[in-house]
């Protein structure tokens, strides 16, 4: 029994008939064609699928698309505005906060929430708040630096 689902992703409305079991991440990747949101685990540990749903960072592999009916969603593709990178994107580039790039979209979406909730976090707070995002390449050092740098640049704006 398919259900019609409509949601706004990065300002664009998407409407599709889906099986209720379709995960939100598959709606985003397969139906909206936004493949920046990744699937890295089955169990909501890795955070590669992190998006923003109605103002909250969530793991889109652990939501059904039907649960997001009517939602406002931002994915990594929607973070840059008018061709200008978001300061967190800039910071990950500047501080070499990524290597293979697979965890990066989720990392950045998670970092956005960290700085939204706490614009001036300590190193320990950043590390704690990254509990839901795994990176196998960077050892987190430069990710933490990137988020600190983003906090500084965002404070200046």
């Amino acid at each position: 029994m398919k259900t019609k689902v409509t949601m706004t992703i990065n300002g664009v409305s998407y409407s599709h008939e889906v099986e209720p079991r379709m995960l939100l991440v598959h709606f985003i990747r397969e139906l909206a064609g936004l493949t920046g949101t990744h699937v890295g685990c089955d169990t909501s540990q890795c955070g590669a699928c992190t998006i923003n749903l109605n103002g909250l960072a969530v793991k889109s592999c652990t939501l059904l698309a039907v649960q997001a009916d009517g939602a406002q969603i931002t994915t990594i593709e929607g973070l840059a505005k008018d061709g200008k990178l978001h300061p967190i994107q800039e910071a990950f580039w500047e501080k070499h906060g990524l290597q293979c790039g697979f965890c990066t979209p989720g990392m950045i979406m998670s970092a956005a929430q960290i700085l939204q909730r706490n614009p001036n976090p300590s190193e320990a707070e950043i590390r704690h708040e990254l509990e839901g995002n795994l990176c196998r390449c960077t050892g987190y050092h430069n990710i933490v630096k990137a988020i600190q740098y983003a906090a500084e640049t965002m404070a200046k704006r």
Binding site: L79, Q89, W93, G101, F102, I108
Partner: peptide, 12 residues
């Protein structure tokens, strides 16, 4: 490499 990865435009 980074501009494509930080904007979700990687090609995996």
């Amino acid at each position: 490499e980074d501009p494509r990865f930080i904007t979700g435009k990687g090609n995996y």
